[in-house]
Structure formats: structure tokens, C-alpha cells
């Protein structure tokens, strides 16, 4: 059983911060992930920067470009995860666009994930139609492929997506890109109830989640809340981004 499978057997509130690898500095990610875990993060998503991040709003776009300018690559992310794993057991999922993974090759990429201790992979531009080869190989190697569903995904499709994913799916909260505003709570609750009724796996929710209240609310209606843009935004202009992130995660977790 991998760390993600274990985590989602526990019926507790879950906070999942997203950190762009190599932002704000090339070497920041090791300290940031460890600090996030110590401050109460239940799982961490590490964003693989990409030149053309189509599903991201301006905040994550900028962090991604900065990370690339800093020299971040997929290979460097794996090296940093090795450092992270010496210090924490927090479940780690990589999140990124498909092309860098395709370029490295599914087999090489997944073998690296296994050997450094990455537990899951989220690829927002790899939908059900194209995802089978990657997902089957990932599952065979014990890495959880975390597929996405959206508010306009039909029930039957949610079933199929979660069936292929196997361990966990990621429900995008809105029709939109990262950092957008949330829809009304009524509409969200209807949607999340629909995901609950149709998904054969646990599911986390992300996009537009930014406050402690959000984290509590989304944990009531799902199995965990992902916070991305507001964590990245919170680092902008801070002299000590690690400290700033620790503080924010404690607030989001309700520990302050």
C-alpha cells in the first residue's frame, strides 16, 4: 500500500498544499515541502513547471515561468524528492502537464517516481480518452494516477474515471483555471454530492480554495482540500517564504 492509499483510509480532515517545484528559488522546494509537512499538510502536491500551462491562472503561470528560469527540470525534482524523503513521510504527488513526462517516457518517469518515493501523479491534460496506458503502468508500479473530474463531467464518466484511477481522483471545483473564484456553495455541494455518489474512489477538491473556512467546508463535502494559487501568492515578495508558508498552512489547518 502506498502512502496515498494509506492516507485516504483515515477518516480525517485533509489539507493538501500545492508548491511549484523550483519556486521561488531552484532549491526552495525541499525546505518548503518539509515545512509544509511539519505545519500540518496531510499530503503535498509538487508542481512540475511547464512552458505552456493551459489550465493555470496567472499566479501559477508566473511561478512556473520563474521556476523554469531558475533551471528547474523533472530530473532535478526527483533529486529534490530524494532529499525530502530523508526528512518526511508525507505523501507526495507530482502535478504537471503531460509533455515533459511523455518526453522522459512513461516507464522511466514512473520508475523514478517509485525509486525516489513519489506516491501519485496528477496530469490535468491527460483525460480519460488518452490516459489508459499511463494509468495502467502507474498502478502496476504502485504509483497512484490521480485523474480529474469537473463540474460538467456526467455521472457515468465520473464512474469510469475513478475506476481507471483506482485510488483517488481530483475534482476541479469550477469550470475554469487555477486561482479563479469559487461557485456558489449550493451549486458546489450538488456537484460534490454527485461526485460522492458516482466515484468509486475517495476524492479531493481543488481550484479556488483559499481560506480555513473553505478547507473545513470542502472536507465536509469531500475527502480533502487542495490549496494552490493562494499558497504561491502568499510567497510573493516575502523575505522568508518558508516561514510565510508554514504560517499560512497552520492557519488553513486551523492550528493558529
Amino acid at each position: 500500500m502506498n502512502r496515498i492509499q494509506k492516507l485516504f483510509r483515515e477518516p480525517k480532515e485533509k489539507l493538501i498544499p500545492f508548491l511549484t517545484a523550483g519556486y521561488p528559488k531552484l532549491e526552495s522546494t525541499v525546505e518548503l515541502v518539509c515545512a509544509a509537512a511539519e505545519s500540518g499538510a496531510d499530503m503535498v502536491e509538487i508542481g512540475i513547471p511547464f512552458s505552456d500551462p493551459q489550465a493555470d491562472g496567472p499566479v501559477i503561470q508566473k511561478s512556473s515561468q520563474q521556476a523554469l528560469d531558475n533551471g528547474m527540470t523533472l530530473n532535478k525534482i526527483f533529486e529534490q524528492v530524494i532529499q525530502i524523503r530523508k526528512r518526511t513521510d508525507v505523501p507526495i504527488s507530482l502535478m504537471g502537464y503531460y509533455n515533459p513526462i511523455l518526453k522522459m517516457g512513461h516507464e522511466t518517469f514512473l520508475n523514478r517516481c517509485v525509486s525516489v518515493g513519489v506516491n501519485g501523479v496528477i496530469l490535468p491534460d491527460l483525460p480519460l480518452e488518452e490516459a489508459t496506458p499511463f494509468c495502467e503502468l502507474a498502478k502496476a508500479k504502485g504509483v497512484s494516477p490521480i485523474l480529474l473530474v469537473a463540474p460538467n463531467s456526467p455521472n457515468e464518466r465520473i464512474k469510469k474515471i475513478s475506476g481507471l484511477a483506482g485510488d483517488l481522483i481530483y475534482a476541479v471545483s469550477i469550470l475554469g483555471i487555477t486561482g479563479n473564484n469559487l461557485a456558489s456553495k449550493d451549486a458546489l455541494a450538488d456537484y460534490l454530492n454527485r461526485v460522492r455518489a458516482n466515484s468509486v474512489t475517495p476524492f479531493v477538491v481543488g481550484f479556488g480554495i483559499s481560506s480555513r473556512d473553505d478547507v473545513v467546508w470542502f472536507n465536509k463535502h469531500s475527502d480533502g482540500a487542495v490549496v494552490g494559487s493562494s499558497i504561491i501568492k502568499n510567497m510573493v515578495g516575502k523575505s522568508d517564504p518558508v516561514n510565510a508558508t508554514e504560517l499560512l498552512i497552520k492557519i488553513l489547518k486551523g492550528n493558529i
Binding site: 503531460y98 490535468p124 491534460d125 483525460p127 480529474l148 469537473a150 476541479v172 475554469g176
Partner: peptide, 19 residues
């Protein structure tokens, strides 16, 4: 039917755009 020209083509988009 899946929009492929052998290994090329297809639909590599966020889930929201599939419908």
C-alpha cells in the same frame, strides 16, 4: 473515431473541455 492519425492527434485537454 478517437481522433487519432495513428499515434498523432487525440484529445489532450483538461476534463472541463471534454464535454
Amino acid at each position: 473515431a478517437r481522433g487519432h492519425f495513428e499515434k498523432f492527434g487525440g484529445k489532450f485537454v483538461p476534463e472541463t473541455l471534454i464535454p
